[in-house]
Design a protein around this nucleic acid. Structure first.
Lengths: 334, 334
DNA sequence: CTGAAAGCGCTTACAG
DNA sequence: CTGAAAGCGCTTACAG
């Protein structure tokens, strides 16, 4: 079972391998008679071009690396499904493929991802940028095309797609304040993420614009999972700390919060209002159905992939951000 | 910004490129002084070996193709998250990566996937095998390592990982019958899947073992989505067809079923019992919480990946099936 | 319209 | 312990 190469085809068809190559790529005109013969030979020999060899010769792979959350987060987070579906759909239409690279929590080099010019990808999509992510600058100098999902730490000349998290958080908190809420819990994503900074900023602004003091003890940074939402909320109730609203950075965190509230027989939304983020399947299916900010995950994924392909194929050179719309979907918890 | 190659390193370090290669791979002993010098040069030049070139030379890529559901299914199916997490975790531990290939519904060649020896992967994981899938035989003759998730159509010498869907369906239906149910709806996956055949077989067996006639009109094949579950159930109620239990092939289908029941004010489980499959987050979070068969998705993914790596690395030669345990988790709908 | 040859950047027998 | 050279299977200038 020897593998059939372009040489075998060329020999059997009585042509050069450049001709075979060109018949396949269509990059130069080939006589119709020759084309027929080559195609027939390819069929007979069941020849399949070796993609790896082609990749080496062209220095392109038509592969994109997706650098996203750890598998632990992925397991229970429907948020990613829509986003990834958006990415894959756009890549697929353009004949690109995606490699999933989960974040490494204790990487030897201290970086969340092993991404450098040795990787067999034409570009990368990187989620959850962190504050002070200097390795992104290295990627930039190494001319590796990449697009962030989320705002970069400082260099805004990097390509990125994001929601306006400052505005959406501001809007939610401001609205709650206007309805009389004063002790509003913010359960935010890990402190290191730039999006956490944005939510906190929106939160602060809302209080400040209403001439109210901010209580730093109402802001928490957690891992995005049900347990952490549950733990925080249980602890607050246990300590007797008063609060009338919770804004959680993710629907699954909100589920944990509501679980704790239910266990303590706290009426929702009567005593405590809960708002999640992501507007995932979870928010809709949960009972009570969770009010949640829709971030347009599918579109985020699709837009990001589209921009990345533009960058890879040099249709887009100048970096910058692309802000996607988001809006609160009210359900039973608010 | 010329890319640094192994030649540049060799030249600057004053050694041959075989030596550089061997320092990196450790495949033959290199003098300690030379090793130091090479390593230092690599550092200075910031040399990153080109993985594509290595792949061509070794005819290995350390990549695995995952051939799974379309992005449409992926979007709302948490079932896949655990399964994929299991795959990626095992691959990651072994320094392999995964490429997600969604199923193509209208592929020009009529096949669900473009998978042949030209693909830059060392092996493949293929979901949802269909009845009469002859292209799998072609993969086998082409010596492409692959493992199925689900039972192959006929050739049981193919590697596969599956649950005993006949047994689990039999158990659910038999149990319902013993509790007095007679009109049990089976909402099965598409007819073409081998697993659908297995569920139907288990369903039939349960009726037969209880000396009851099977009503073929109670069995439906649907796409795995909420809408289809909803539609079937609504239609049945609308037509006045009596039934006291529904077994759905997937939690999200069960969600649709329950939605229809609720809309028609049918008491669950008082009037109609509903049982799902997958035991996903959805089943747990839903209200009422859905009784569902736990299939051990994470373990399925992890086991499949492990077997595939065994096959790729020739630690496993003889094909066959690996049956994973499943069990019903009772909640509020039964 | 077609071919001979160089090159992509590695690995690995072969030779010493 | 180390090197020179062939080879992996393609693409693409260069030449005609």
């Amino acid at each position: 079972l020897k593998t059939v190469t372009i040489n075998d085809v060329a020999k059997k068809a009585g042509v050069s391998k450049s001709t075979v190559s060109h018949v396949l790529s269509g990059k130069r005109p080939i006589g119709v008679e020759v084309t027929q013969r080559v195609l027939k030979t390819i069929e007979e020999l069941n020849y399949k071009p070796n993609v790896v060899a082609r990749n080496l010769a062209t220095r392109k792979t038509r592969m994109v690396g997706f650098y996203g959350p750890s598998t632990k987060s992925f397991k229970n987070d429907v948020f990613l499904n829509e986003l990834i579906a958006g990415i894959i759909d756009v890549l697929d239409m353009n004949d690109y493929k995606m490699i999933y690279n989960p974040e490494k929590t204790n990487n030897s080099n201290g970086l969340p991802f092993d991404l450098d010019s040795s990787q067999p990808v034409d570009g990368a999509i990187i989620m959850n940028p962190r504050i002070g992510d200097d390795y992104l600058l290295r990627l930039k100098t190494e001319k590796i095309p990449f697009v962030l999902i989320g705002r970069p730490s400082d260099d805004l000349d990097i390509f990125y797609v994001d929601n306006d998290n400052v505005a959406s958080t501001y809007s939610v908190i401001n609205d709650l304040i206007s309805k009389g809420h004063r002790q509003i819990i913010l359960i935010n994503s890990p402190k290191s993420y730039t999006m956490s900074e944005d939510r906190e900023k929106g939160y602060m602004m809302a209080y400040s614009d209403n001439n109210l003091p901010v209580d730093g003890n109402l802001i928490f940074n957690v891992d995005i999972c049900e347990e952490d939402g549950y733990d925080i909320c249980s602890r607050l109730i246990g300590a007797g700390n008063p609060f009338s609203a919770v804004f959680a950075c993710n629907d699954i965190v909100a589920v944990g919060v509501i679980k704790a509230l239910k266990e303590n027989k706290v009426k929702i939304p009567g005593k405590v209002v809960v708002i999640g983020e992501g507007d995932t399947l979870i928010a809709r299916i949960h009972s009570p159905a969770i009010s949640s900010i829709n971030l347009g995950e599918y579109d985020i994924g699709a837009t990001t992939a589209g921009i990345l392909l533009d960058v890879i194929e040099k249709r887009r050179i100048k970096g910058g951000g692309h802000i996607m719309p988001s809006k609160l979907v009210e359900r039973e918890t608010s």
